[in-house]
């Protein structure tokens, strides 16, 4: 079993999907010969042919729309949007078409497509390259929203997304692409969508997060442990449909909940989780539900980026504030 980075795991899953299913086709900008700007599709055009790993013109709307058309016609398109900040023109396709074709045709037509895009800050990229759009996406009925936090999760969740009968937006944390390696088996095994994963068990407080922020959450949990606080870390992984049961079970056990995400706090995905915890696990709570998120502002440019993102120190402080409730 090879040690892989997250981007290598994405590449491995795409190769596996192309190998297993002739209906799988990749489309996107610079994904062919160039292998994608992050090399997610590196080597795939040479191996599977340019008809299956197909460069598109520089036009995000028609990339998403073509994926819808291909999916309705029975293929399994995996479209890449180069950066999340460039996917906003695809929202028309996701909201008006991908998410509602099954409903509005009463199941006659379906849309088994995947839209992949790198998300989040932390690599000091140019403007519009560090967005966290998961909250907007998770508000769309009929869409699934998935974000992996480890190489193995990226492999298993991406395979699940490609095999899923409904449209999936797959958000790949840019910051994690080459940050860490772990063993990933190319066994073709998918991980379940709609399932949250307990990444660390604990008794005193539940830290809920997803994607790249789980790195800082993990560091914070370690610091908290050294200070005598046992934190449980839950990786949401699939924001829509949300695995409320796992989240509520954890909070019911610990009695405290801190939700950490990179996107702005106001009307973010953390608000929905906080509301569910408040209404479904109220009697278990010994502290108010906490949220630590990006500031409610525009994602800053590179120089202020690190100060915007939730840091391990700020997560520890927020957790300790909740621990003060007895």
């Amino acid at each position: 079993m090879a040690d892989l980075t997250l981007i290598e795991a994405v590449n491995l899953a795409l190769a596996r999907a192309l190998e297993d299913d002739p209906d799988v086709v990749l489309i996107g900008q610079d994904i062919g010969v160039n292998g994608g700007v992050f090399r997610a599709t590196g080597g795939l055009a040479a191996r599977f042919g340019e008809e299956r790993v197909r460069d598109t013109p520089l036009a995000e709307t028609v990339i998403a729309a073509s994926a819808v058309g291909m999916a309705v016609e029975g293929m399994k398109p995996v479209a890449e949007i180069q950066f999340a900040g460039f996917m906003y023109s695809c929202f028309d396709q996701l909201i008006n078409h991908a998410g509602r074709l099954r409903t509005r045709t009463r199941g006659r037509l379906t849309c088994p497509m995947v839209l992949r895009t790198p998300v989040g800050g932390g690599i000091h990229a140019p403007e519009h390259h560090s967005e966290s759009p998961e909250g907007w996406l998770a508000h769309i009925p009929g869409i699934k929203v998935v974000t992996p936090s480890t190489p193995a999760a990226a492999y298993g969740l991406l395979l699940a997304a490609i095999r899923d009968p409904d449209p999936v937006v797959f958000l790949e944390p840019t910051r994690l692409y080459r940050m860490l390696k772990e063993p990933v088996a190319d066994d073709g095994a998918a991980l379940p969508l709609g399932r949250a994963f307990v990444r660390r068990e604990g008794a005193d407080i539940t830290l809920v997060s997803w994607g790249a922020t789980l790195v800082e959450v993990g560091q914070a949990a370690q610091t908290l442990a050294e200070r005598g606080v046992s934190a449980e870390v839950v990786d949401v992984a699939t924001l829509r449909p949300l695995d409320s049961a796992t989240l509520l079970a954890s909070v019911s056990k610990t009695g405290r909940c801190l939700i950490v995400h990179e996107a702005p706090r106001l009307f973010g995905a953390g608000a929905e989780i906080a509301a569910q915890v408040a209404s479904e696990a109220l009697m278990s709570l010994v502290a108010p539900v906490g949220r630590l998120a990006g500031y409610d502002t525009v994602m800053p440019l590179a120089r202020l980026e690190d100060d915007y993102l939730p840091s391990a120190a700020r997560i520890v402080a927020a957790a300790e504030a909740l621990m003060a409730y007895r």
Partner: peptide, 12 residues
């Protein structure tokens, strides 16, 4: 917004 669906169907 359906014009791009046609390109997808045609590509299939």
């Amino acid at each position: 917004s359906h014009c791009g669906h046609a390109t997808g169907v045609a590509a299939a």
